[in-house]
Design a protein around this nucleic acid. Structure first.
Lengths: 333, 333
DNA sequence: CCTGGCAGTCGATGCTACCGAGTGCCAGCC
DNA sequence: GGCTGGCACTCGGTAGCATCGACTGCCAGG
């Protein structure tokens, strides 16, 4: 563990580096850290901090820059969680007060909100609900040989799937299928959909089977939905265009993003710094995550992806607030 | 109009510049254009082309670079539409063969496909359907005081809106409202929803009114949906990080993207180059657009946004093919 | 244990010289 | 008249070099 002065020095280096992106020299630390010692002493401590792996020198005769370990210590022990700035608190409040419309749209907007608040990329992952039950099923004909199966789940999610029929089917059979499916499936869990008993009418049964299949199939291979907002912030956060390309490339791969957030959360982390993310291209990034809850149960994940030299206190505050308000919003409605 | 040789020279400059991003000198033109004259002659013609506004010199003693007018001429008269490369044709075919699931997801994936095909950013705009009619309406209770209104439209789109009730309502009233609304609204146009006659039951009527309101309201303020895929391509397409930031910033603003594509299409253009886009930050970009059709009617727009020095023939081919296949896919299903 | 002082390092900055790709122009040729 | 080879010229980019200054590490002394 670090003694008090070294911790203060480390904090000063991290904070200043976050602010300026420039290596921090001992003189700056003296000015900004508040420690009452000379720069020579600070230099000495900084050398120690470097030996211990908290800091690193880009090159001799340059100031110091935090290492991952340095950021980690900062986040764990030094970064007092900054309360949101007033204007941002207002922004969040107003956002959730005015949020309306479809769930997907709101989550998309939430990712954008996160981006705006932090100036990093905002991410929202909404899981395919696994524990919900079917509340209502309806089959609607679109053309004579296509029908749409619409299922409303107990959490308010709506699923729709088109099914193609081998042969034309009449409205009355569609109606029969709706009634039949509704009676049989309502209340069933997402993954426990069983085939309804035969009705005796072949065409109706065929339709029921197709409809059931579509519901079952997509429950399996449907990935969690990913919403990314504020990608342009990524371009703002890094100077090296190569890094921008890599990070944007990652953010485009839904599956990767889902896994990434889940992994971090599963490890019990709130913050993953650099290689802690487990993804090589994100070596220069840090990720802040938080789950959100619906009716007290963990439903999805939100997060912010920025450079390792991100403003952790501020970003963590933003994520926490948004996760809280989002949970509230989804629970009440 | 340009004589044959000047046109050939212009084509050579455009093609080479698209390829290398380097100003093109007269010697290169001689090598690659196939014109059988000396570099001095080419120089002379290039000077003329510059006077006429097709080319421009970044600085004296540099080669030439196409102007917007130059690109425009190339697109209009020189860019023979390249057929898709075989592997890409396969990619498109396979994409649409395997496309399934929800409309939104497919459009999102389509935007990504466009990005992959062209290495620029792909955009898909899906309009809020205006001319569709209601095919089915259903009200489902979520909690005692919230209900979900699900409407299936004739084009297969599904709309869902939560409504908050002033007081708890029983299942039987919800059922009554469903039946009542279904009977009254089915077949009605998107914008011609009229209030159903009173049922005599106050609670049921209140619910019907709320449900109707939710359908009406969102039909008004709901923006066209925008899907952008391949944002990382933007970072690849430009060297200047400042440009990347600006372009990404634009792409994040749904409303702006919608307007942009619509404007271009309304002007009857297939391609908008630089300032033709009407947006200052896109001065270094070119946009290729195409409508897609569902049942023969223009439904939405797809497009590709890249640098002005984009590979027009290839990108135009990709957009055309995707628009065609998408239309087909949406029409059959 | 801390400090001021000092020698030393090394990237960043600015200067100059040079190179070469590319131009415009012109006199001469077909 | 149109095309060409030749030529002088321009100017951005690169390499080499000196300078500067923000740092550091170390040390002797309080």
């Amino acid at each position: 563990m670090l003694d008090e002065r070294k911790a203060a020095i480390l904090r000063a280096v991290v904070e200043e580096y976050i602010d300026t992106a420039l290596p921090v020299g001992s003189a700056h630390v003296v000015k900004s850290s508040g420690v009452q010692v000379s720069s020579a002493t600070v230099r000495h401590d900084m050398a120690t901090l470097e030996q211990e792996g908290y800091l690193r020198q880009p090159h001799t005769s340059a100031g110091r820059v935090p290492t991952e370990k340095g950021y980690r210590f900062f986040v764990d022990h030094l970064g007092q969680p900054a309360p949101l700035r007033g204007s941002e608190a207002v922004q969040v409040r107003s956002f959730f007060d005015h949020a309306h419309g479809e769930l997907e749209q709101m989550l998309q907007d939430t990712s954008r909100l996160l981006g705006d608040l932090t100036n990093y990329a905002g991410v929202v992952v909404a899981p395919t609900p696994t524990e919900t039950t079917v509340r209502s099923v309806q089959v609607v004909s679109i053309t004579t040989t296509t029908a749409l199966v619409v299922a409303v789940m107990s959490n308010g999610a709506v699923e729709k799937h088109t099914v193609e029929l081998a042969e034309p089917i009449g409205e009355e059979r569609i109606g029969a299928a709706t009634v039949h499916l509704a009676a049989h499936l309502t209340g069933m869990g997402r993954h426990a959909l069983s085939a309804p008993p035969a009705t005796g009418d072949a065409a109706t049964d065929a339709l029921c089977t197709l409809a059931l299949g579509s519901l079952r199939r997509d429950s399996g291979d449907e990935l969690d939905q990913v919403f990314v907002g504020g990608t342009s912030q990524v371009a703002r956060a890094f100077d090296a265009i190569e890094t921008v390309r890599e990070v944007l490339g990652i953010l485009e791969q839904q599956y990767v993003v889902v896994t990434l957030l889940r992994d971090v959360l599963d490890r019990g982390l709130q913050v993953a710094i650099g290689t802690e993310t487990g993804m090589a291209p994100l070596a220069e990034c840090a990720l802040i995550v938080a789950p959100y809850r619906v009716d007290g149960e963990e439903a999805g994940t939100i997060g912010v992806l920025g450079p390792t030299r991100m403003d952790y206190p501020q970003a963590m505050a933003a994520v926490a607030v948004v996760s809280h308000r989002l949970s509230q919003r989804l629970t009440e409605g």
